[in-house]
Amino acid sequence: MPELYLGVATFLLLNIMVGLIRILRGPTPPDRMLTAQLFGTTGVAILLLLASALSLPALTDVALVLALLGAVATVAFVLRAWHKPDLDGEEE
């Protein structure tokens, strides 16, 4: 069973690598942000699999923290980072 979990974890890691293409290409900032969101979820899955495969229960806590904080960056992106070009493009 550990081999299978490790294999799936490796497969998920490769998924992340392929997904990087979307971050590089964009084209819009929201595209990139949601890809990062997917990476967070994939990271949670990888950590859970590793915790089981390597018998390191502490990694479950890492997955828990990752799951808890996964949304913080997205929220910051939506509320603080991305501008509405139609509204503040012509200020002053």
């Binding site: 929201p30 969101q37 799951a67 996964g70 949304a71 997205t74 929220v75 939506v78």
Partner: peptide
Amino acid sequence: KILLIWLLVLASGATAAHLVATAALRGGI
């Protein structure tokens, strides 16, 4: 604990998707 992690990802993932979609729409995409 594992179940809780899934529920958390579910909640924050749904919210994040909603926020990004709203922001993208407002941003003129």
